[in-house]
Design a protein around this nucleic acid. Structure first.
Lengths: 229, 229
DNA sequence: GTCTATATGACGATAGAC
DNA sequence: GTCTATCGTCATATAGAC
């Protein structure tokens, strides 16, 4: 748990290179997919330490030892899940936060995409949140290379938009974290939100109201361009 | 862990009413304070499941069994820590988000206070985040009564400010969650922020830049009043 | 390749000496 | 009131039968 992962990636599935293990067969792929899906649910519910391999096995409908056979240790399984999540996590920004778009259109599309992620894959969002809360030891290399470059590209986009007078100058890192924290709250803090609204679980209308609130904060900011000219 | 707590509070320290336990003595108070402080650090680092009573005992400088003697089970200790945190958590809003203040002054003071909390008690913020991620089972009653009323008071404040044309109409629940998620990110997501900035830990300048970004989003929103009149 | 049965170790909790 | 030594439980991991 405290061990540092190899710098190449999030800790890719080690089992494929294990000595003595032949090529993946047909049943293996189905089992692997079921285990990964179950792991995402269970890790998302309880975090790494709180989750037990037993529960993942039950949820996936496979015998417990098969998980170790396919994925090695619990931590290696966890890293496989993390890697899947991060691949998804970065996608939307390259579609929306690019200089070719109008600023308002870009922000709106991106924020909608992030809210959709919170609604459709809340477990994935929570696993990421747990990992970051723990100090992000398993993904530090990824954050300080891939994610940092990702933010740098957004900074160039904002720079262009600012020169074109579509938005005021702003610290790009902190604007991105503001957007991420607000949108991810609808997955990570959903228990708190639903307790306050009184709804047992978050309803579509909650996501819609949250989306509108975030849009008004961020798009309203773009309007400030006149005041600061 | 899955058991529901009595509806009276977060699950107050049960040890005081234990049969056969005399009144608290003098050394007890020092030990209890040390244990609570250590528990806040350790639970904040690893969450409930990830933390071990052993580590808390080491950190507090007391033998492990004393923790059980003072606080009963690990979960009861955890609930004591949670209760301490929540008391602090609500304080600032009653100082700042009240109709007597100007809207801009109120939002600025409140956001500064929340950022100060993230900087000064990051472990407390993280414990709360872990608990909410887990589904908030230990604090559900508290969230659906105390916190809900707390939000309702903010809603009345915003209503007044809106009538006085100091800010546009907005959904108060989602505005509060936007502010909470943005400010708490500087404790809960600090590992991610520092990985992106390249600083080993968050520096004062990071908190300041974050504060300015959040202020511009929220105070800029107040300016929108003219557009929507 | 797959699964049953078991080894190993860590943790929470307590009994009982001081 | 305080602490040493220990018990029972449960989870990860593996050895070995099929």
């Amino acid at each position: 748990m405290t061990e540092t992962l190899p710098p190449s990636s999030v800790g890719r599935a080690v089992h494929r290179t294990r000595p003595g293990t032949p090529r993946p067969g047909i049943p293996r792929q189905a089992a692997e997919a079921a285990i990964l899906a179950a792991a995402e649910r269970v890790f998302g519910l309880h975090g790494f330490r709180g989750a037990s391999v037993n529960e993942i096995a039950r949820e996936a409908g496979v015998p417990k030892p098969n998980i170790h056979y396919y994925f090695g240790t619990k931590e290696e399984l966890y890293c496989s899940v993390l890697e899947n999540i991060m691949t998804f996590w970065l996608r939307d920004a390259d579609d929306w936060l690019v200089p070719e778009r109008r600023a308002r259109e870009g922000f709106e599309g991106y924020i909608r995409a992030k809210m959709a992620f919170s609604r459709e894959r809340p477990d994935a969002s929570r696993i990421f949140a747990y990992e970051v809360l723990q100090g992000a030891g398993n993904i530090h290399h990824y954050l300080s290379t891939t994610l940092r470059e990702h933010v740098a590209r957004r900074a160039r986009t904002f720079e262009v938009w600012h020169r074109e007078r579509q938005m005021p100058a702003i610290d790009p890192v902190h604007l991105m974290f503001a957007i991420w924290s607000m949108t991810q709250a609808y997955a990570d803090m959903s228990a708190q939100i639903s307790a306050v609204t009184g709804h047992a679980v978050l309803h579509d209308s909650d996501f819609e109201a949250g989306l509108q609130t975030i849009l008004r904060l961020v798009l309203g900011f773009c309007n400030d361009i006149e005041d600061r000219a």
